[in-house]
């Protein structure tokens, strides 16, 4: 099953449950409060997920390591390598 199918399956399952509760399709005569909670639920989920995404990406950007030490080490090794290669007879 492709990822697209998994998502569609998940979305349609959730959608079905949501529609059942919101419009009381099975005539379970659920308490009113259930319906009132259920109908804006997709929007809540979307906003929650959006906030989670922004917070996660923001945090990860802020904590993305800057490898200054690695760059310095590389620079030193480049100098060393150039000298050694020249001694070994490499002509550039």
């Amino acid at each position: 099953m492709t990822k697209l199918m998994q998502w569609l399956l998940g979305a349609s399952l959730l959608g079905t449950v949501w529609a059942l509760v919101t419009f009381d399709l099975l005539e379970l005569s659920l308490p009113r409060v259930y319906r009132e909670i259920a109908w804006p639920m997709p929007l809540y989920l979307l906003v929650t997920f959006g906030c989670y995404s922004l917070a996660t990406v923001g945090f990860r950007v802020a904590t993305f390591n800057d490898c200054d030490e690695a760059a310095r080490e590389l620079q030193e090794q480049i100098t060393e390598a150039k000298e050694d290669l020249r001694k070994k007879g490499l002509k550039l």
Binding site: S53, T56, V57, R60, V61, F64, N65, D66, C67, D68, A70, A71
Partner: peptide, 23 residues
């Protein structure tokens, strides 16, 4: 993206795109 991994020479824009795309 994990542990001591990281990048050198990337500005904020590049980091943002990278992290966003990865997420």
């Amino acid at each position: 993206y994990q542990g001591n991994g990281g990048v050198y020479g990337w500005d904020l824009r590049r980091k943002l795109i990278s992290r966003g795309a990865n997420f």
